[in-house]
Amino acid sequence: MPEIEFREAIRDALDEELARDERVIFFGEDVAIAGGVFAATPGLYEKYGASRVFDTPISELAMTGAAYGAAVTGLRPVLEIMFGDFLALSMDSLINQATKYHFLTEGRYGVPLVIRSVVGAGGRFGAIHSQMPVSWLMGIPALKIVAPATPADAKGLLKASIRDDNPVVFFEHKRLYSIRGDVDSDEPLELGRAHVVRGGDDVTLVSAMKGVHDCLEAADLLAARGVSAEVIDLRTLRPLDFATVVESVAKTNRVAVVEEGPLTGGWAGELLALVTEHALGDLDDAWRIATANSPIPYSPPLEDAFLPGPDRIAAEVLARP
């Protein structure tokens, strides 16, 4: 099958799930007539009509409330929050309503709601449109957080998210939309299962989304210096597949977790805590490679230096004792 772009994989997953299940609806700002500001959803409005694919006013609070209401009354909404920075406006409906409903109804009812949202820095969008809000959501029980790195995973994980019976936040890194890759399956992928994308013996590099590609480039740099790095793509950040990481650490004895997000309070720290609890006897070294505890700079040179790219990852591995 020919390679397709990440954005095409997202569009194909939505198209196939809209066709598969008439209960699926899709809405958000500029997703219908304009086809999305990142050109990820063209043609869906024309194919499925205004009752199933439609644009909304600029109100994340109202959109999320409408999505929650649709989910508890028999539909399977997919909502696009254009930038993840504005998920703060969705928090009440998402956290206090959608993620609690299954618990409060003693498991009788779910909330099949997916929120797609664009995240990440490096695109010169400034401090208020470049954040990585994963850490805002990591402590929310019953919420799944999906973070694909490739077109194949984007398609398979989005299809799985739409079929899930409880809330999923699906993050799409803006710097991945134009990457290309093979997509050779129309089947959903299992949520909560990491993937070893490169084998190695000396150190384990763990990341998600754009960070996976940075780790793979860093692994090439390290290989030139005689260091064999194993690279793990987590694919979902809640739940975390720490078992795959533990298995790798048993072989390499060293692990670096690469997170595009502030060092304090991030998912990298949670993953290292789990690895330490379950594999302390195998660990010789463990650390985080993240961003500084500051807003994201707008200046291109400062933004590039702010992010944990391949050169920094390789340099940190080589600098460890």
Results as ranks from 00 to 15, higher is better:
Pro310Met: 12
Ser294His: 05
Thr73Ala: 01
Lys47Cys: 06
Arg23Gly: 02
Asp214Arg: 14
Pro188His: 10
Tyr109Phe: 15
Phe27Met: 10
Leu318Ala: 12
Leu272Glu: 11
Gly36Thr: 11
Arg312His: 03
Ala160Ser: 13
Gly181Asp: 08
Gln97Cys: 14
Pro77Ile: 01
Ala142Ile: 00
Ala98Cys: 05
Ile179Lys: 03
Leu216Lys: 06
Ala32Leu: 09
His278Asn: 15
Phe83Lys: 08
Val275Asn: 06
Leu176Cys: 05
Lys251Trp: 01
Ile58Arg: 00
Glu60Lys: 02
Arg7Lys: 15
Leu191Ile: 14
Gly107Cys: 09
Asp55Ile: 07
Met1Thr: 07
Glu247His: 00
Thr291Tyr: 05
Glu217Ser: 14
Ala66Gly: 07
Ala194Gly: 04
Ser207Met: 08
Leu191Ser: 05
Asp12Phe: 13
Glu230Asn: 06
Glu190Ile: 02
Phe86Pro: 00
Trp136Lys: 04
Leu79Ala: 05
Glu17Lys: 07
Ser90Ala: 14
Ile81Gln: 08
Gly84Arg: 10
Val72Met: 11
Ala147Glu: 00
Arg198Trp: 05
Lys174Gly: 03
Asp30Leu: 01
Val169Lys: 13
Glu16Phe: 05
Glu80Met: 05
Leu189Met: 13
Ala292Cys: 06
Asp21His: 07
Gly49Cys: 11
Val245Tyr: 04
Val111Trp: 08
Val212Gly: 11
Phe83Trp: 11
Leu318Ile: 03
Ser185Met: 07
Gly261Arg: 05
Val118Tyr: 12
Asn293Ser: 11
Arg20Gln: 11
Gly43Thr: 04
Gly199Asp: 15
Arg193Trp: 08
His278Trp: 10
Glu80Val: 03
Ser59Trp: 10
Gly69Phe: 10
Phe27Leu: 08
Leu191Cys: 08
Ile58Asp: 03
Pro310Gln: 13
Asp182Arg: 11
Arg288Gly: 11
Asp12Lys: 14
Pro2Cys: 03
Arg288Trp: 00
His195Tyr: 10
Ala208Gly: 02
Val206Ala: 04
Ala66Gln: 08
Ser93Thr: 06
Asp282Pro: 01
Asp164Val: 09
Phe86Lys: 02
Phe27Gly: 02
Ala32Val: 04
Ala286Glu: 09
Val134Ser: 05
Leu79Lys: 10
Asn293Arg: 10
Ala9Asn: 10
Ala305Thr: 00
Ser161His: 11
Arg198Leu: 06
Val317Asn: 06
Val203Pro: 08
Phe306Glu: 04
Leu75Phe: 14
Val24Pro: 00
Gly107Asp: 10
Leu75Pro: 01
Pro77Thr: 02
Asp153Phe: 04
